[in-house]
Design a protein around this nucleic acid. Structure first.
Lengths: 195, 195
DNA sequence: GTCTATATTTCGATAGAC
DNA sequence: GTCTATCGAAATATAGAC
């Protein structure tokens, strides 16, 4: 119970990120100007620059939150041998589905602004500490130790999850999310008959 | 064998579209300037405006080619009743896979520049004659006549195909495309056990 | 059809007062 | 921490000669 900065709930910095995420989803990153973000927030452009060094930094901050969601899942690969990875994959997918549902907007940001996000990786501190999660997964798919068929099906399963869950909330009509998630889990399970 | 304009092979207009597609994939639509397109083509910006009314028009032209690829497949839905759609879905997917492979770059353009392309739909002649293919598919997924599970699996199957085939050529290591396609077909088939 | 300008606009970013 | 004011750059698009 510190008196100051107990938690950054509702701090300006957080509100900037909220509004930015909102607008980046509506209009895309490039088409969203800092003026729009500031206007919707009721401040001026210059105020944004007190909290972030650049527009790219706002996107980077949002992207890093997505990173954090996937990092510990990917980290487990490093302690598993190839065969164990294949065996534990379906279980990992179940966790993954939960996170996609709980953080749909962050995943949507990544899906709908791929070009902008890829160029984050080239520039900045994004390199030093952060190996890009997508690159890491690509390297994983190129691993000769795993049977090609298994790798293809892994890629398929991720795409299937994204495709079915990203549009959740309207696309399938007026259906509770849980029902859709149940069907997605079943479908993905059929992609790994042995598991 | 007409003497003039026999076919627009290698016409400047076509070369502009080729270079634009190339750069839109490398850098994204927004980060690509008309100057870059003109430079790589060996002409000036002004020359581009002789062939296209705006930068958006270049993207629109590329997008319409993707449209044409999917339209006749979607058109067949209109003459099928709901049950027939479910039954013929796996066969349609097989055709679809062929088209994705044959036109990978156009699909990549759509995948990596979603925000830019969605805003095409709001503005222009894109509305009059063209109902957006994505909207059409969304309406399809909302159709109550089909069992929800079937619709979820349909969405999954498309995502699986995209995810596995878009990265083809490098992502899975040095493997011929045909082999990967074969595994994708098998995987997608497992999503529709009854079919 | 392509060129050399140039117009026009918008955006990201900074300086400095409060 | 937020403001006013402005800079400088870059982009789209146009005008008009060749």
């Amino acid at each position: 119970m510190q008196t100051t900065e107990r938690r950054e709930r509702g701090s300006t910095r957080e509100r900037i990120l909220d509004v930015a995420l909102e607008l980046f989803l509506e209009q895309g990153y490039e088409k969203t100007s800092l003026r729009e973000i500031a206007d919707r927030l009721g401040v001026t452009k210059a105020a944004l620059y007190y909290h972030f060094a650049s527009k790219e930094d706002i996107l980077l901050e949002l992207h890093l939150r997505l990173h954090a969601l996937g990092r510990d899942i990917l980290d487990r690969f490093d302690v598993l041998d190839d065969e164990e990875i294949v065996r534990s994959w379906p279980g990992l997918l179940d966790e993954f589905i939960d996170r996609v549902i709980a953080n749909r907007e962050l995943f949507l940001l990544h899906q709908r602004n791929q070009s902008a996000i890829e160029q984050l990786a080239q520039n900045e501190r994004h390199q030093a500490e952060n190996e890009d999660i997508q690159q890491r997964f690509r390297r994983f798919l190129a691993n000769d130790g795993l049977p090609l068929e298994a790798r293809v099906r892994m890629a398929c399963s991720l795409g299937a999850i994204f495709s079915a869950l990203m549009g959740v909330g309207g696309v399938f009509g007026d259906v509770p999310d849980e029902e859709i998630v149940r069907y997605v889990r079943a479908a993905v399970r059929d992609l790994f008959p042995a598991g």
